[in-house]
Amino acid sequence: MNENISRLMDGEVDDAEFERCCADLKSEDAMRTWMCYHVIGDHLRGAHGVSARFSVRFKAALAAEPTVLAPMPRQRTTQPATFAWAVAATLAAVTVVGWTAFSMVEAPPTAVAKAREATTVRAAQPKPSGDVPTEYLLAHQEYSPAMAIQGGGPYLRAATATAPEPRP
């Protein structure tokens, strides 16, 4: 189970497994592991931008919000604002949950090791250069039926992919 969560975080599951993992994440235990791995991962990467008192201040601010009992009729002009608020609220909720998880969960050592492993594996992978190897591209596209119906299409792609750096 924990290994599946780790693989899900690394994007190593296929579509069918993805569905299964998402279903599994509905359990409280799995969700705690998921949050825990993320918080650990964030810290290993040095990504901790939220101040310690953020969740406290957010909670206080949320509590101070007046409760709207009669919903306003929805108007077109207010839609972008509503959308922006929805995004902001989601972000805030995620942050609060993440922070709470970090401060509350006593992670077992194996979980820390697992998360560390997932993070280091990802960090160790060389960054893709963004270029498909030219020979591969040329060898591949002679078989692509959709490309074959475009006059010059495959050659345009090859010209873009194989363009050398200009020199004086």
Binding site: Q125, P126, K127, P128, S129, D131, V132, L137
Partner: peptide
């Protein structure tokens, strides 16, 4: 090169 790259539809 290890991992995913994407150029347009490729």
């Amino acid at each position: 090169q290890i991992g995913l790259t994407q150029t347009g539809g490729l």
